Simulated scan of single mutants.
Amino acid sequence: MHPDFPYQLYLVISEESCVHFPMLQVAEMSIEGGVDIIQLREKNLDTSAFIKKAEALKKITDKYRIPLIINDNLDVAKAVDSFGIHVGNSDMPPTEIQQKWDRNKAIGYSIEYLEQLENEQTQVANHLGISPIYSTATKTDTVTEWGIEGIKKIRALTPKPLVAIGRMDAGNAAEVIKAGADCIAVVSAICTSEDPKKAAEKIKSQIHQNQHENL
């Protein structure tokens, strides 16, 4: 667990990613199963609709005292006073976000190639998304498939909290944490599950088991 980012299981959620239950229900079930931070990712909504969805989700995250991250929309993040925002290379850069928003807010930044570790955006970011560890159908605009060796390389080059995303599930969470990630970000393994609570519990168990083995 990273002292600056004490979250271990990170759910990335959207309405369309949720198969068996409505999004808000999946969010609540997943929190009960061990998710401790949630990112709302709605690429196809206009800002007004995105804000309404974020407000509804924030009622749940506030109820459980879980941080809410907004994907790539500073207007929405400001409107709902979210814990933070997550951006990639083609989004508003972290340096600009920092100028336009409360500096105490968390900024997540996706690392898609090693050279990014040396740029100003990475320095400004609070935590880094390693995207993707394994290629995934939910995110097709990525540059590098990092794999386990990629996590190890990045871990050796930065002390910042690392959030691993890309086909993460209970079967690979332990090895990803062992390789140097601080947090596992999940989409399909929870959102498409017939039992989101149990799916979250299984992944969290793997994270904890590996951490105890490394003590």
Rank of each mutant, 00 (worst) to 15 (best):
D62M: 13
D62K: 15
K63P: 06
K63H: 14
K63G: 08
Y64G: 03
Y64R: 06
Y64N: 04
R65T: 15
R65S: 15
I66N: 02
I66A: 08
I66W: 06
P67F: 11
P67R: 14
L68Q: 12
L68C: 09
L68W: 11
I69W: 11
I69D: 05
I69G: 03
I69T: 07
I69N: 05
I70V: 13
I70Y: 09
I70S: 00
N71I: 02
N71T: 04
N71M: 01
D72E: 08
D72Q: 05
D72W: 03
D72F: 01
N73W: 07
L74P: 00
D75H: 10
D75M: 07
V76R: 01
V76I: 05
V76S: 03
K78I: 15
K78M: 12
A79R: 09
A79C: 07
A79T: 09
V80A: 03
V80T: 07
D81P: 06
S82L: 07
F83G: 05
F83E: 12
F83R: 12
F83Y: 15
F83M: 12
F83Q: 12
G84P: 10
I85K: 08
I85L: 09
I85R: 08
I85W: 14
H86P: 01
H86I: 01
H86L: 01
H86F: 02
V87W: 03
G88S: 03
N89G: 15
S90E: 14
S90D: 13
S90R: 11
D91R: 05
D91V: 05
D91N: 02
M92K: 13
P93T: 06
P94M: 03
P94D: 07
T95Q: 10
T95R: 14
T95L: 04
T95K: 13
E96F: 01
I97T: 09
I97G: 01
Q98N: 09
Q98G: 00
Q98Y: 12
Q99G: 00
Q99A: 08
K100C: 00
K100N: 09
K100A: 03
W101F: 12
W101D: 07
W101T: 11
D102Y: 10
R103M: 04
R103P: 03
R103S: 11
N104E: 14
N104L: 06
K105S: 06
K105D: 06
K105H: 13
A106Q: 15
I107R: 08
I107H: 08
G108T: 11
G108K: 12
G108F: 12
G108V: 10
Y109A: 03
Y109Q: 05
Y109P: 02
Y109G: 04
Y109R: 07
Y109H: 10
S110K: 09
S110C: 04
S110N: 04
S110R: 08
I111F: 01
I111D: 05
I111E: 05
I111A: 05
E112C: 00
E112W: 04
Y113A: 01
Y113V: 01
Y113R: 15
Y113T: 10
L114Q: 08
L114P: 08
E115Y: 13
E115W: 14
E115T: 13
E115A: 13
